[in-house]
């Protein structure tokens, strides 16, 4: 039976269609979960929080979405050991919800940055870089304005680091996991790197972490 991935949708989410296509490309079933729902769809095995501008990025990116009704269900899923990945705005939501350490701040460039980035695997023991060893390099694009991770890189479980720390992240962090490793967030967009036509299929490596 294929893995069922719930793709969350908040008002202002943009990248759900790309995320659904990427998940289905891995042979999983994608189902949409609406922000106002109190429960994840029946049969949900894993959760994906896609990118965008939930609630217009008002107050702080991800702050209002992190308090949405569906997030209680995501928290329970994560606490039960279920896989959760947050991409870009989804990463901001998971940090604001306290499911991941740190916070995302304005890029030190003070500009929206959209480009392909090289990422180095910093911890090869999480589910999110299957088959890769620490130090391996993958290529995934970023597109964000508030993508500088801020936090304690000494205690956080850093999964991916930028080779070029363009955005000014603490310790060049591109993606972090919770201590158990089942929840991960990253600013780069793996769902936009799942087709050779787009220049890279390395995103499939990260998203394979959703499929147990």
């Amino acid at each position: 039976m294929s893995t069922t991935v719930a793709v969350l949708r908040f008002p202002g989410t943009l990248d759900h269609d790309s995320a659904v296509r990427a998940v289905e490309g891995l042979g999983a079933t994608a189902v949409e979960a609406w922000h106002a729902d109190a429960a994840l769809p029946a049969g949900t095995d894993a959760v994906l929080l896609p990118g965008g501008f939930s609630y217009g990025d008002h107050l702080r990116c991800g702050a209002i979405a992190s308090r949405a009704p569906i997030m209680g269900a995501v928290r329970r899923h994560a606490e039960a050991g279920g896989r959760v990945v947050g991409i870009c705005n989804g990463f901001q939501v998971l940090c604001e919800a306290g499911l991941l350490p740190g916070a995302l701040r304005r890029n030190s460039t003070l500009s929206f940055v959209c480009r392909q980035m090289e990422l180095e695997v910093a911890d090869d023991e999480t589910p999110w870089t299957p088959g890769l060893e620490t130090g391996a390099v993958i290529s995934i694009p970023i597109k964000n304005n508030e993508g500088a991770w801020y936090g304690d890189a000494g205690t956080a479980r850093v999964v991916l680091r930028y080779r070029d720390n363009l955005l000014g992240s603490t310790d060049a962090v591109a993606g972090v996991a919770n201590a158990a490793g089942n929840v991960m967030g990253l600013m780069p967009h793996p769902e936009e790197a799942c087709d050779a036509l787009l220049g890279s299929t390395d995103g499939q490596i990260v998203l394979a972490g959703l499929i147990a």
């Binding site: 702080r60 702050a63 604001e96 916070a103 701040r105 801020y150």
Partner: peptide, 9 residues
């Protein structure tokens, strides 16, 4: 504490 500020930053 709950929403308006993020105590980390």
């Amino acid at each position: 504490e709950q929403l308006l500020a993020n105590a980390l930053i």
